[in-house]
Simulated scan of single mutants.
Amino acid sequence: MLEVTALGWTLTIGVIVALLALDLAVGVLRPHAVGFREAAVWSVFYIAVAIAFGFVFASIAGWDFGAQYFAGYIVEKSLSVDNLFVFVIIMSTFAVPEKYQQEVLTFGIIIALVLRVIFIALGATLLSLFSFMFLIFGLLLVFTAVQLFRHRDEDPDVDDNALVKASRRLLPVTDDYVDGKMITRVDGRRMVTPLFIVLIAIGSSDLLFALDSIPAVFGVTSEAYIVFAANAFALLGLRALFFLVKGLLDRLVYLSTGLSLILAFIGVKLILHWLHEDVWHDAPEISTPVSLGVILVVLTVTTVASLIKSRNDPAAKAHAGSMRAHRTREEKRS
């Protein structure tokens, strides 16, 4: 079992908060359209920081725990790319001006990080108290994988988001973005801007991704510290990664298929772990190195196959995948 001192937690949280403050300063205090070069520099920086942390952590805690961190980081990073698909859809649906997209993304990342901290604490507590939660988490991931694979050629429908619909119905919303403000006054009346609704849409999508990603990362490590660190470092680079790859996302046509395979694999791993611990002690277990290898192979094959497909069929377009089939216009009206 990994023993992390109060000082270790404090230093880790301090580094993450400092990086978050840096991201906030870049994305909110200086709103501007982000170019490819700037996005590339920041993306490389955040990935380098995550890798450096992994090597430092492994040298202190041992390479077994280090492998668990890198496996968790890769899982969360790959899931975050799918999250970017949804961000792109939301930004396009609400026609968010480029100079305000950084602000929305940064606050969206903060919301995602807070939600993950809550779910990590809850997940770690449940797993320590009830071993059958490994079975529950495993079945949840397998179900998610099946649904994602079934609807891999669809995109989430923002119009079906309950929070967005309720906000539009209950809150007075301005017609334009009002200099990037979220709340403003028009003729003495307090109103929210479309940017506020966009943040609600992103925050609610973050909640859904947290429900999937936390069980997934607990499938490669049971250590709450590693789960937290892997999630935090994977999320911190999302803002820059969004601007770096948003023009390339359409080419990753098999990403949803690859993610569904990864989620199903981790789900099976959790179920086997439950069987081994509670039912049948001779049940096979999947080691961390094997998990890391499978995840890397699936992501590599998915990426290469996507690029080949896009090159041979320029009309092919990637989709974020959806947990349910879309309703028709007639069904929405009814």
Rank of each mutant, 00 (worst) to 15 (best):
A21S: 09
M323A: 15
G203I: 06
L129H: 11
T302L: 01
V301M: 05
A6K: 12
T10D: 10
I271P: 01
T300H: 04
L84Y: 03
I202V: 13
L127C: 02
T184V: 10
K332D: 07
E3C: 02
H32N: 04
L272D: 08
T303H: 01
A325Y: 03
R311T: 14
V146L: 06
A318M: 03
G108K: 01
S131C: 11
H32D: 11
N312K: 07
L299G: 02
A224W: 07
A112K: 10
F218G: 12
Y69I: 00
A18D: 09
L79A: 09
A48Y: 05
V117Q: 09
S222C: 05
R324T: 09
L307H: 06
L307T: 00
D187N: 14
G203M: 11
D179F: 14
E331Y: 05
P215E: 06
N231R: 01
L171F: 13
G66S: 04
S78T: 12
L307E: 02
V294R: 03
I197W: 11
L113W: 01
P31G: 00
M323C: 10
A25P: 12
S306T: 06
D278C: 08
D176L: 12
A18V: 09
G108M: 03
M191Q: 15
K99S: 00
V164P: 14
L84N: 04
F233Q: 05
A33H: 10
L261H: 01
L299P: 02
A210W: 09
L113D: 04
A18C: 06
A25Y: 15
F134K: 13
K181N: 14
L252G: 08
P31M: 00
T144F: 11
V104R: 07
S260A: 14
I226Y: 09
E223K: 05
I271W: 09
M91H: 03
W42D: 10
L244E: 09
V279Q: 04
G54H: 01
A40E: 08
P31T: 01
F107A: 02
Y225V: 00
G27L: 12
T144Y: 09
A325W: 01
F87G: 08
L270C: 04
M91K: 00
E98R: 05
I120Y: 08
I90Q: 04
A210S: 15
A216V: 01
T144L: 13
D212P: 11
S92R: 13
L236D: 01
F134R: 14
S310A: 10
E38W: 10
D159V: 13
L296S: 07
G188P: 11
P215Q: 04
M182V: 15
K246C: 07
I89P: 07
V56A: 11
F132A: 14
S260D: 06
I74C: 05
M191E: 15
F87W: 10
L238H: 01
R168C: 13
A21C: 14
H32K: 07
G267V: 08
D278P: 01
S291I: 03
A316W: 02
K309P: 03
S310G: 05
L11V: 10
Y100M: 15
F134D: 11
R333I: 09
I200V: 15
I266C: 01
V146M: 11
V75G: 06
L195I: 06
M91D: 12
R327C: 00
